[in-house]
């Protein structure tokens, strides 16, 4: 336990001193500001385009538009940034050989992997919270009257999917040597999930639902129970992937 905490401290120090934490916070802060900005800007931009004499009646922007922008940013760029940030957490150390000292000092490999996954997850949690609270603040300030349903639920499943992606990344980092190969494999996995979406029968099991249906979830009529299977699927896959990476990392020669 003490080694685990010590290694977490080391990972935290690394994020701070290599400016990665600062970078993540700034980027997610920008996501938070941009989402309501885009929602507010959109009708104005459209009306500029519509000056050519065609009358387009646009609905006034509402809170739902802010969150639509928020989920669009976070499920695409947000997840990409997080996966990129932690794409080298193991591959870089294995490549340089910095773990040799610590392992020969008695640091179990499982501790290394779990501590790294913990730090990545905590960072994702903090970044998501930051972006969400900024968007939430602006939205409440701009459109205080609008009613939104299942908002925290929708953000929570996005958060869960982020944890799943980090587990996918950890798994491939214990298997392949290069950071680039690992990123390509993660991309293939996401592509695979999108392909599975084409089969309606698989639809209700697909973890991808957690990041494609976020806006629909905000509707009062959305049936949250339809998410139960994808949620358990995602949790199950995350655990399996983590166990798999522990096994692969254990077999890996330093």
């Amino acid at each position: 336990m003490r080694a685990y905490l010590a290694f977490i401290k080391k990972e935290g120090l690394e994020l701070i001193r290599t400016y990665k934490l600062l970078l993540m916070f700034l980027i997610f802060f920008a996501f938070g500001v941009m989402s309501p900005l885009m929602a507010k800007l959109m009708p104005d931009l459209m009306s500029q385009l519509a000056l050519e004499g065609i009358e387009i009646s646009l609905p006034e922007p509402s809170a739902i538009d802010c969150y639509a922008q928020f989920f669009k940013n976070l499920t695409q760029m947000g997840l990409l940034v997080i996966v990129l940030m932690f794409s080298g957490m193991l591959t870089q150390e294995l490549g340089k050989g910095t773990l040799v000292h610590l392992v020969t000092k008695g640091l179990p490999k499982s501790t290394i992997l779990l501590a790294k996954y913990t730090v990545a997850s905590l960072s994702w949690t903090a970044c998501l919270l930051l972006a969400f609270s900024v968007t939430y603040g602006y939205t409440v300030y701009l459109f205080s009257g609008d009613e939104i349903f299942h908002l925290f639920y929708s953000v929570s499943v996005l958060w869960l999917f982020g944890l799943f992606l980090l587990a996918v990344s950890s798994f491939f980092q214990t298997i392949v040597k290069s950071q680039a190969t690992q990123l390509i494999l993660v991309a293939f996995c996401i592509g695979g999930l999108f392909l599975l979406k084409l089969f309606p029968k698989m639809e209700e099991y697909n973890p991808l639902t957690l990041v494609t249906d976020n806006v629909a979830m905000l509707d009062k009529a959305y049936d949250l129970t339809s998410l139960t299977i994808p949620i358990f699927m995602t949790i199950g896959l995350t655990i399996v992937l983590l166990l798999g990476s522990l096994l692969a990392f254990f077999k890996k020669q330093l």
Binding site: E14, R17, T18, T104
Partner: peptide, 30 residues
């Protein structure tokens, strides 16, 4: 390994740490 100290041919460290911080990390791990 608790009985052993190992010095690899090209020792690699975390470049963002000071030597004291690095030794403390090793100490906590042991």
């Amino acid at each position: 390994n608790r009985w052993i100290g190992y010095l690899p041919d090209v020792p690699e460290f975390y470049s963002y740490m000071t030597p004291r911080e690095y030794l403390s990390l090793c100490g906590e791990i042991t």
